[in-house]
């Protein structure tokens, strides 16, 4: 392993991670400085609905594709969402396994599993890019950051597929993966990719309010018999 690769796998990642962590802490403090609204009125809706249930339901709703009409009626888009995010999670895990637990990658099944899911996520990324660029509605709502973030993830996932076997010969595959990972860590807090940081908060407040008002869990449509 070259010194450059060692640097990229360790020091560069560590510095980037610390940077990202600091920015995230600042970001959360910034977010929390906005005052949270309060509800003075009594609860509405069925007595079985509560703010606590609303919050839990709200957090879990992303794993319940049947709950929202938007996910229930677009199963392919939902499947893409699942694959894409699993791939990202696998690639993030890989960025820790290679420097800190490389022995795990001697298990070929694990390597194939990581390669499989990251490759699938990479393919989904390409489909998402085509959808974003091809649909009039998606184009209208997309910013340069939306395109760039998606492109960045597609390339990063591609290199995750190549890096998974952790072979240093040739080194460029690992170098590319770790340099991209470092860039990714620094860029993410300023991009839409940081949505996962806000998800727990937006979902918490929306779920709390909807639970208090008896709207969550959502009452889905019932067909007349």
């Amino acid at each position: 392993m070259s010194e450059l690769l060692h640097f990229c796998e360790h020091r560069l990642q560590e510095v980037s991670l610390v940077f990202m962590g600091l920015v995230y802490v600042t970001r959360i403090l910034w977010f929390l400085h906005f005052k949270a609204g309060k509800e003075r009125q009594g609860q509405t809706g069925a007595p079985s609905t509560t703010p606590a249930k609303g919050i839990l339901y709200s957090w879990a709703i992303i794993a319940m594709p049947w709950a929202m009409e938007s996910t229930r009626t677009k199963p392919l888009l939902y499947a893409q969402f699942v694959v894409f995010h699993l791939g990202v999670a696998a690639a993030i895990t890989l960025s820790f396994i290679i420097p800190y637990a490389p022995g795990l990658l001697e298990n070929r099944l694990l390597v194939w599993a990581i390669q499989g899911i990251t490759a699938a996520a990479c393919a989904v990324g390409l489909i998402r890019m085509a959808r974003r660029a091809g649909s009039r509605y998606m184009r209208a709502i997309s910013s340069p950051d939306d395109y760039f973030s998606l492109a960045l993830l597609i390339v990063w996932l591609f290199f995750a597929v190549l890096a998974a076997p952790n072979q240093t010969s040739p080194e460029w595959r690992l170098l590319a993966f770790f340099i991209l990972t470092a860039f990714f860590l620094v860029y993410v807090p300023f991009s839409k990719i940081s949505h996962y940081l806000y998800y727990p908060f937006t979902r918490y407040y929306f779920g709390k309010s909807m639970g208090y008002r008896g709207v969550y869990p959502l009452q889905r449509s019932v067909k007349s018999h």
Partner: peptide, 14 residues
């Protein structure tokens, strides 16, 4: 905080 959350969280997923 609720409104700020709605401002920052959109990922333009459509």
């Amino acid at each position: 905080r609720q409104i700020a959350g709605s401002m920052v969280a959109c990922v333009h997923c459509g």
